[in-house]
Design a protein around this nucleic acid. Sequence first.
DNA 1: ACACTCTATAACTAGGGAGTTGTATTGATT
DNA 2: AATCAATACAACTCCCTAGTTATAGAGTGT
Lengths: 139, 139
Amino acid sequence: MVTTPQVMNQHASVVGDCEDDCMLSKLSPAALQLVAEFFKVLSESSRLQIVCRLRNGPKNVSEIIELTGLGQANVSKHLKILAQAGIVTREQQGVCVFYQIANPFVFDLCELVCNSLAQQIQQQTAQQAALDEFRQTIR
Amino acid sequence: MVTTPQVMNQHASVVGDCEDDCMLSKLSPAALQLVAEFFKVLSESSRLQIVCRLRNGPKNVSEIIELTGLGQANVSKHLKILAQAGIVTREQQGVCVFYQIANPFVFDLCELVCNSLAQQIQQQTAQQAALDEFRQTIR
DNA sequence: ACACTCTATAACTAGGGAGTTGTATTGATT
DNA sequence: AATCAATACAACTCCCTAGTTATAGAGTGT
């Protein structure tokens, strides 16, 4: 299922067929697809919720179910997707299965997005305030 | 359509109802939803391709269509989604409409993901090499 | 006015994925 | 061995969305 060798080749070709002044503007479709798929894994609030719940240490599935309020089968599917994406790792201990964050850089990603969103909202509210002010001046 | 005021309230409540040792583990559902929606915008390779094409400066729609090979209506829809997410900005010049990256931090996001994926692949190939080596020793 | 180009939008189809329900599997307990 | 609890998986439904086709609108030159 995973096209690892192809990816490596594609990644090598990224440097090769560069016509623009910037290499990143001529990314191979396969590499873009990989990045997009990674973002897709993080693009569901349920999965994001699970990831956040694992922020301060490993948790087993039952704990995740209880913390998130999601259905058992649903959580199981999401954890599989997160594990396949390399975002979490799986470790069985007896009858329980513990999941934990594989690479904490996902929190860097989330923080970057949060900052950007906060900035956007701040700008919007500033514009709103300016509009309100203008509305008063013409009254 | 945009739930800006609610978001602000939710964001304020994030700090409030914190029971864990880490605030981020008790994120409000609304905030998570916003972050997830942002990731969703970047989770389509066509949109990611458009973003990458805009890396070295603004481009009008026709140029984007030509560079990406996507259909005209399709590109128009994607650009609308990107603009609504605040990833690109729109500027009309006569009959042409130029789009450009609103906040270059999206490239930081992509780079972080790329690095992580490259690291994963590297580990996988290392494991593959170890397996091949082992296979030879038992032959 | 007319024709032409560029961009946006509406309507439609097909495919994918989230959530649910039911079931299977695996480890622990008695 | 039997039972119970924890987790995974299969099958199903419903909704969302990417892409396409056709059309509309807006700016430009003749």
